[in-house]
Design a protein around this nucleic acid. Structure first.
Lengths: 225, 225
DNA sequence: TTTACAATAATAGCTTTACTATCATAAATA
DNA sequence: TATTTATGATAGTAAAGCTATTATTGTAAA
């Protein structure tokens, strides 16, 4: 059986739905590729247009600007992670096991699972690590938040916070701990590869070490005292 | 007695030492101000030049580009924090009390203490929260790291990791926990004000709550089991 | 006191980024 | 067949991100 996953996106993120056309899919797919190759700062719609053999104006018909494209990509990613979290923790009752699943889903490199037709999830994960914070670290956070551009991120955070609360209903900081898990899964991996002395895994460079660190951190915090 | 604090900066960060001239000081001082007002993305040397009544070329004589200026500012900040950490924890033997000092130094808004002649530290803190990650989330991390541009950050991290190790020599992740404390002190405050549902302090918006969360997190993790 | 040197101001100019607008054409649909 | 829709081709503008040149200060050494 082949299953294909369709993720519903916030319509305000684009001018024309990129999933509906070939060019649109190319923009997202190769946009991810190009951002990964040259970094978000150097990335321009002109370069992307050349990369996929269209014109700058052609790209602008789909997205207002490159920041919107980054938000689009990031939303897609968090939606996809949330789907995987729900799928993988379904039918598990033990909230401890659920949390471990969540941590490893967040911190371990994904292999492209081909469930989604046009996105390479492994490269996507690397972009998220290096670029996702830039979606909200702007003077537009509040406005963008009102447009619900960060809903997928906040929803994922809420899902994790709920698992934490099931584990220990008396724990006082479920949301902050959830956002800490998500952010640190990204940052510790980034540090491990790029500024290794900020971590304890500079030598081995294994994502499983980040998982161990986060598990230790989280379960010490939420265990019933 | 009046004490003035002079922080030695990495010479590769600037073309001409901004601390040596009036214009240089103005560039840093009002650079901080302007980045705070309009955000780093909208910030340009042209706007800064107009802001302080000089020319664009004048600013370029001090810094290669705005990213270098941001790194300069960020380095200055982490040097200053490390100084305060060493000063405030000096003569304290109990590593637990030291750690609490550190956490509150990191997470609480500072008042401009006038020890440093030309920087408003409270605004600086806000810039660090919103912009500091952008110094290393680039394709240049490795090169910039080789130039020691992140040394002040890494040194601070090492200082904190050492206190953690004194508290519990068997704790396995002192560096990762240290970088987590530093990063989360920033991010939880940012979230609290801008994306409150990612925290448990959206209602009260008190930095002391972030301190409580971090203390709980850290001491659960490092307590001897 | 002159000289010379350092820092800045004034001006110009160049490439790239970040967009917007217009018109022609090809493909899909009514 | 008519007509909408997506794309392509082309042009153009304002601002960002620089560099270069020359003139003018103010300061410090000869």
């Amino acid at each position: 059986m082949e299953v294909q996953l369709q993720i519903k996106m916030n319509e305000k993120l684009y001018l024309r739905d990129p999933e509906q056309t070939e060019l649109g899919k190319k923009i997202v797919q190769h946009g991810i590729q190009l951002i990964h190759e040259i970094g978000f700062e150097s990335f321009t719609f002109r370069k992307l247009a050349e990369y996929i053999g269209t014109t700058e104006a052609g790209v602008y018909r789909y997205f207002d600007n490159k920041h919107r494209l980054l938000i689009y990509i990031t939303c897609w990613y968090w939606n996809w992670v949330q789907y995987r979290v729900l799928f993988e923790t379904n039918n598990i009752n033990d909230p401890g096991i659920k949390l471990k699943k969540v941590i490893s889903l967040l911190a371990k490199t994904v292999e492209d699972d081909n469930k989604t037709l046009y996105v390479d999830e492994s490269i996507l994960h690397q972009i998220i690590i290096a670029e996702a914070s830039k979606t909200y670290l702007t003077k537009n956070v509040t406005e963008d938040n009102k447009e619900l551009f960060f809903k997928p991120f906040k929803d994922l955070c809420a899902v994790i916070a709920n698992i934490i609360l099931v584990y220990n209903p008396k724990y006082k900081y479920p949301r902050s701990l959830a956002s800490t898990i998500i952010e640190m899964a990204q940052f510790q991996i980034f540090f491990m590869y790029n500024l290794p002395s900020l971590t304890d895994f500079g030598k081995t460079k294994k994502e499983s070490n980040v998982v161990s660190f986060l598990e230790d951190l989280v379960f010490s915090a939420i265990r019933k005292k």
